[in-house]
Computed example of a mutant assay.
Amino acid sequence: MKSGIMSLIFALYLTVMVVTANSDSNYYGTTKPVHLKEEKVTRLHFYLHDILSGRNPSAVRIAHANLTGGADSAVGFGSLFAMDDPLTVGPGKDSKEIGNGRGMYVSGSKDIRKFTIVMYADLAFTTGKFNGSSISVFSRNPVAEEAGEREIGIVGGRGKFRMARGFVNIKTHQIDMKTGDAVLRYDATVYHY
C-alpha cells in the first residue's frame, strides 16, 4: 500500500510538472491585429530652465570623471547630471510653470567648443489640456550649436501622448558658460494617437 501511495504521489507530481512547464513555455501572448485611431500631430512651445548654480539648483552633478575636469569644471567630459527642471510658458523666471523635465544627461564631448550632451528626459505637463501627460526624449543634444536650432528625438510618451514619436527643436535663449545655467526654448512636434 505504501508503494501505491508513493506511485500516486509521483504521478501527481509529474502531472503538475508537465502542466507547469507547458504553461511557462511561452513568453508571449496572442498576437492580434491593432486598429489604431487616426494619428494626430500636436505642436508644443515652452521653455526649460536648467539651473546648476545657487542654493536651489534644478540640475545637479551626480558623478564626474576624475581625469576630465573634476569638480571645478561646470560641464566636464563624463559628468553625469540629474535634472528636475521647470517647464514654463515664457523664458522669465516668474513665467507660468506648466510642468517639469526630469531625467539625466551626460557630457559626451571632450572638446568644450563642440560641447554635446546625451540626454534622457521625461517632459511632464502638470496643467492645462495635457495635464498628466508627458513626452520622453532620448537623444544627442549638440549644445555648442547655440547660434541655430538643434534637434532631439521624441521616443515615447504617456497619457495623451502614449506611443508618441517626433522631434524637439531647441534654441538656447540664455546661457551662462561659467555656471552652466541655461534657459532653452523647446518647440516640439509630437505625433501620437
Rank of each mutant, 00 (worst) to 15 (best):
P86K: 10
S139W: 04
N131D: 10
I135G: 01
P86V: 12
M83V: 15
N100K: 14
S136T: 10
R113T: 12
S107V: 13
P91C: 12
R140G: 00
R140K: 10
K96S: 13
F115N: 11
I117K: 01
K93P: 14
V89S: 08
Y120C: 03
D85G: 04
K96M: 14
G103F: 07
D84V: 13
V137L: 06
S136C: 03
F138A: 13
M119E: 11
S107N: 10
V137G: 02
F138C: 09
I135F: 07
K96F: 11
Y120E: 03
G90R: 07
T127E: 13
T88M: 10
M104Q: 12
R113W: 07
S107F: 01
R113L: 14
R102D: 02
R102Q: 15
G90M: 14
A124K: 06
L87K: 08
R140T: 07
G103S: 08
D111F: 04
S95R: 10
S133W: 00
A82N: 11
G92P: 02
Y105F: 15
F115D: 05
I135R: 01
D122W: 00
V106W: 03
I117R: 00
Y105K: 03
T126S: 12
T126E: 07
E97I: 14
G99V: 04
A121S: 11
G132V: 08
K114L: 13
S109L: 04
F138I: 12
F130D: 10
G128S: 11
D94N: 15
S139Q: 05
S139T: 04
S134I: 00
T116D: 08
K114I: 05
D85E: 11
V118F: 15
I135C: 02
K129F: 05
G103L: 09
K129V: 13
T116H: 07
V89D: 06
K93E: 15
E97Q: 13
F130P: 00
V118A: 09
S133D: 03
A121G: 02
F130V: 03
D94K: 13
R113Q: 10
F138D: 06
T126N: 12
G101Q: 05
D111Q: 05
T127W: 09
